[in-house]
Amino acid sequence: MTAFAASHREVAAQLMSRYAIFIVLVLVYFLAVAISDAFLVPTYIFNVVRQVAPVGIAAIGVTYVMILGGVDLSIGAVISLTSVLCAVQMNGDQANVAMAIAISCAAGAAIGTINGIAVALTRVSPFVLTLGTGVAVLGLTQIYSGGTARGIVAPGFREVFNYRIGDVVPVLAIAFLALAVLGLLVQRFTVFGRQLFLIGSNRRAAHLSGLSMARVTILAYALSGLFGGFAGIALLARSGVSNTLSGQGLEFQVLAAVVLGGTTFEGGRGGVAGTIAGILVLVIAFNLVNISGLPYHMQLVVMGTIIIVASAVYGQISARS
């Protein structure tokens, strides 16, 4: 009986640990509802999901890389490049939309692949390497665009992504959620997903089991770049202008969401679901201070405090279990 109770507690503790970020998300959401009724309005909630789509989509790919024990700091630059590339390739003509999207995704995946090959085949730290790639890609974007936002978004492109199904749910929000589900399925149900966790938690065991670590590493970074491409397209759909610096700084929001979601820099743990919860915590924190009507500087103080408290609560729940 005691043994049963103990194991029962253990299971409960494990569940708490696994779902800690979701508990935090629910708490932050209730706080938001307490501050403003807007968080009960479906149109507004889906606005919030749409706001976070570009960063959220990018965070899915970066989660794979971080489960592996790596990091991708070039993601912000990839978002800027692919967003400019997509607008230039569209050139204001609907007929070019499919090709523009394909080229942007290919560019993102190509940069990710280069990152992956360099990480897999050299001893350079992924931190420094992807930082370098980010700087170089930023330079390429500036050269390509000449500093201005070149390219014109084709008519219909933004209208499709911002169309509200049933007057409530924007297509861009659906696209983000669909990619999140896809990312989760890849992580949970593919061999590649399990290999990520094995390499991240025990490189030697992975090596000894005959796993091609280079192949998995390259694929993980390529996916990170590909999702960066999707994020660039999502940003273009949201903002409508391919500013050359539009993705600048987003890498920090991405990393914050991934880490808050339980994926660590050491690798081997975490996952896409946690990342999505992490990104929602961050965006709700921003919106709730903004909607509360606090003066701007106070908003920063309160938002920072919410993020700190959220991560402390998360750490506490995880540690107890």
Binding site: S36, A38, V41, Y44, N47, Q51, L235, R238, S239, G240, V241, S246, F286, N287, N290, I291, G293
Partner: peptide, 16 residues
């Protein structure tokens, strides 16, 4: 100076 951010903030103001 960011179009997306201005839109995000305005979405909140419209609720307020």
């Amino acid at each position: 100076w960011n179009r997306a951010k201005a839109k995000q903030i305005t979405e909140n103001l419209l609720q307020r």
